[in-house]
Design a protein around this nucleic acid. Structure first.
Length: 196
DNA sequence: TTGACGATATACT
DNA sequence: GTATATCGTCAAA
């Protein structure tokens, strides 16, 4: 398992969203290591009306304007935390939402943070994934291309076939095919008919 | 299996 | 006051 260096991570938003499929999100918790393989992402490229940075920088979305490979963590609907990877050069403001993980390591640690959840549901959905890995606002803005509390890694495993669909839960620019997924994964969120 | 609903942080009208 | 990149719970079918 190797940390993904910034030079290896694609800068362009859609390219990065596809690249991240099959890669690992690694979290260092006090109790130990927890990691999951990314099976679902959504791209929010520059100019997209559903992108938080669309109307400019605010205190919440400022991490989107960091150079590609930094974490943008925010609270959605007051209760769920969302993990994004910033994309594009510094100052542009764009990112990729991580929507679902296949648990790989530290499954017991994730289960402890998601009481009552079935193994398949541990990190199925952006809010669930963040809860399972103990991701909170303290991690907003950290560099995901360096070994630390939270980072991206790869282990050379084949990604599998990639499927494409419209994004979930948005209204503006809802028709754009910017959701990417690993076909056939049991850990995908969203309605089945979108997971082809 | 599907659909409605409330919780509630942040931004915008 | 209204909208939102969600989730868990509950009820009906």
């Amino acid at each position: 398992m190797q940390v993904i260096a910034r030079a290896r991570l694609p800068e362009e938003t859609v390219t990065q969203a596809r690249f991240l499929l099959g890669r690992l999100v690694v979290r260092r918790l006090p109790e130990g290591l927890a990691a999951g393989r990314i099976v679902e992402t959504e791209a929010y490229p520059p100019g997209d009306a559903a992108l938080h940075a669309w109307r400019g920088m605010t205190r919440r979305n400022r991490s989107l304007f960091l150079p590609h490979g930094h974490a943008y963590v925010y609270v959605c609907y007051g209760t769920a935390m969302m993990l994004n990877v910033s994309s594009e050069p510094g100052g542009v403001g764009a990112g990729v939402l991580i929507r679902a993980l296949a648990p790989v390591e530290g499954v017991a640690l994730m289960a402890a943070r998601r009481p009552g959840a079935k193994p398949r549901d541990l990190a199925r959905g952006p809010g669930r994934l963040a809860a399972a890995l103990g991701i909170d606002l303290a991690l907003d803005g950290i560099d995901l291309c360096r070994d630390g509390a939270l980072f991206l890694a790869e282990d050379g495993a084949p990604t599998g076939e990639i499927g494409i669909s419209t994004r979930i839960g948005i209204t503006r620019d809802a028709h754009r095919p910017l959701r990417f997924l690993v076909r056939g994964s049991p850990f995908l969120s969203g309605p089945r008919h979108l997971n082809l």
